[in-house]
Amino acid sequence: MDAIFESLPQYWDGFLRTLFLAVVSGVIALAAGTLLAAMRVSPVAALRGFSTFYVEVARNTPLTIIFFFSAIVLPRLGVKFEQFEVAAIIALSSYTAAFVAEAVRSGVNSVPVGQAEAARSIGMTFTQVLGLVVLPQAVRTVVPPLINIMIALVKNSSVAGAFFVLELFGYGLQLSNSHGDAVMWILIGVAFFYLLITVPLGLLAHFVEKKVAIAR
């Protein structure tokens, strides 16, 4: 127990770094995932094909392998970055974007097709149909699964610790070494700080789900 209190500064620093990784990757994943979903339902066959291919590859590949590619293979191919955080953000956001794309796509499919037909018949372009009519209605169905994806993202960010990024889990590894007699307590501390992010997200999902239920 004392090991936890002694290490609070490291925990706090790791917590902030994890939060940073999750927020930046989350924002990128949301934008990229929505774009991928839009491509998936677009009338252009090439865009649909690309999106399907990307999503299937990214979400069916183990995250560790994606990390390996972005941290070790990308630099060999000439994509250099100063910090491994960049590699972690690339890996986390490209992986999570595939899940976001699937959630948004299923949300888009939950909007009755007549809505899009009506929008097209008053002369809206594809982007207008999606942006003004379909996505605003898809949001309701999409938010709860999106929050689950974000919770998974927070936990997945711990893989970065194994790729030279010092975040919550990375500190956990360091502290376990320096407090060899209290590894269990150190790891309980690590878990606690993860829960500090994921539990509020879960509560938010619960709250939004209730909101949606009332609005219908």
Binding site: P112, G114, Q115, E117, A118, A119, R120, S121, G123, Q137
Partner: peptide, 18 residues
Amino acid sequence: AHLRADVGMVFQSFNLFA
């Protein structure tokens, strides 16, 4: 899209933007 703007359409299931 331009052409559709000149053609009004009324559906069986109304399809008002919900």
